[in-house]
């Protein structure tokens, strides 16, 4: 009986697959930076290897939530880009797996440190410093002084002129929150945030939205990563990028291979590909001005140079842990966001 069934099945199979299709190589990519960059990576990788890439672009928060929801039955292979915190959290929860790429030797120290901090489960692919940008036209129109420091943003004349994202929904804004706390200490930091709250006209949902609003003249100042502000400036908007005088935090955009990836070989190929100098240099063609993690990759000339920025010693381990995160977010919600303006 079984033999009979098997041969019947074989016949059907031959009929269905008379063309004899070989199983094509594929890769499922979760991508968190802007769409163009994601598309560029996909297209270039496909052109070079012929591996078919299925890519979803979702913000790092959305991607993290999805990988977590899928943990019992992972559907993705590589998570490329997006701020480092959720990558570290994913590594901590065992959602991603260790991989020691032969490319590691070519990377900057900060990228390798990210790799080591996560026990090899993630790696830095770019870095970007936090800061803000302002609309020069609006500033002149209002006759406001050029803001140079964090402290300038809480001056009363900037009331209703500053925009930042909501740290509950955006990783960028959480980095801002953690930066302020590390820079000024927790108590003083929250005092700062309360004063800043008086000047905020809107907490946006997405991290880079404030600078886009500033570009269109919907707000004067937007607190964002500096490379996002550069993007707007290069696009032709009247934006000036500021690196705050007190010093500032930064993000390490990261990449991880998902634990239980179904296409592990292809995932590793992509991982190595994404760390290559020539691939990282392509970012500027899609107006992404982060500092690349490969030492041989020339930083885009438009990008703010990390050497010129006063960077704080950002404690990724403490402020990336979910306990600190939950506590700070709740405190921010209760003590800052609920205040009247």
């Amino acid at each position: 009986m079984r033999k009979f069934l098997l041969s019947g099945a074989a016949l059907v199979a031959i009929g269905a697959f008379s063309a004899g299709t070989a199983e094509a190589k594929k890769l499922t990519l979760y991508c968190s930076p802007q769409e163009e960059w994601c598309q560029l990576m996909v297209t270039e990788f496909q052109k070079e290897t012929g591996i078919k890439v299925a890519m979803t672009r979702k913000s790092s928060g959305e991607t993290f939530a999805q990988i977590r929801a899928e943990r019992d039955n992972p559907k993705g292979d590589v998570w490329w880009g997006g701020t480092g915190d959720p990558h570290l959290q994913a590594a901590e929860e065992g959602l991603t797996q260790e991989y020691n790429s032969p490319m590691l030797a070519e990377l900057h120290d900060w990228a390798v440190r990210q790799h080591e901090a996560a026990k090899g489960r993630t790696v830095g692919i770019y870095a970007g410093a936090l800061g803000f940008g302002f609309n020069t036209e609006l500033l002149a129109e209002k006759g406001l002084p050029e803001p140079k420091c964090w402290a300038d943003l809480i001056k009363p004349e900037f009331k209703g002129e500053v925009q930042m994202a909501n740290p509950n929904s955006s990783g960028t804004a959480y980095t801002t929150l953690a930066t302020i706390v590390q820079l000024f200490g927790e108590d003083e930091g929250f005092e700062f945030l309360k004063k800043l709250h008086m000047n905020i006209n809107q907490y946006t949902k997405s991290g880079s939205a404030p600078i886009k609003a500033a570009a269109r003249g919907e707000t004067t100042v937007g607190i964002v990563f500096q490379h996002d502000a550069v993007t707007q400036k290069v696009a032709g908007f009247p934006i000036q990028v500021v690196s705050p005088c007190e010093g500032t935090g930064y993000e390490i955009g990261s990449m991880s291979i998902i634990n239980g990836a179904r296409n592990l070989e292809e995932a590793k190929m992509f991982y190595d590909f994404a760390l290559r100098a020539d691939v990282q240099e392509m970012a500027r063609t899609v107006r992404a001005y982060q500092v690349p993690s490969n030492k041989n990759a020339a930083p885009p000339p438009e990008a703010p140079k990390l050497e010129d920025i006063k960077l704080i010693d950002y404690d990724f381990k403490t402020y990336g842990s979910s306990a600190t995160r939950t506590r700070l977010l709740k405190k921010w919600d209760d003590e800052v966001n609920s205040l009247p303006r």
Partner: peptide, 24 residues
């Protein structure tokens, strides 16, 4: 509400960000 909401939160967007936002 997502595009024009400003600081006027409504349920549909709150539900969305309760799930995908940093609060998870």
């Amino acid at each position: 509400p997502l595009v024009l909401g400003g600081n006027y939160d409504v349920l549909s967007t709150e539900i969305f960000f309760a799930i995908v936002g940093a609060q998870n």
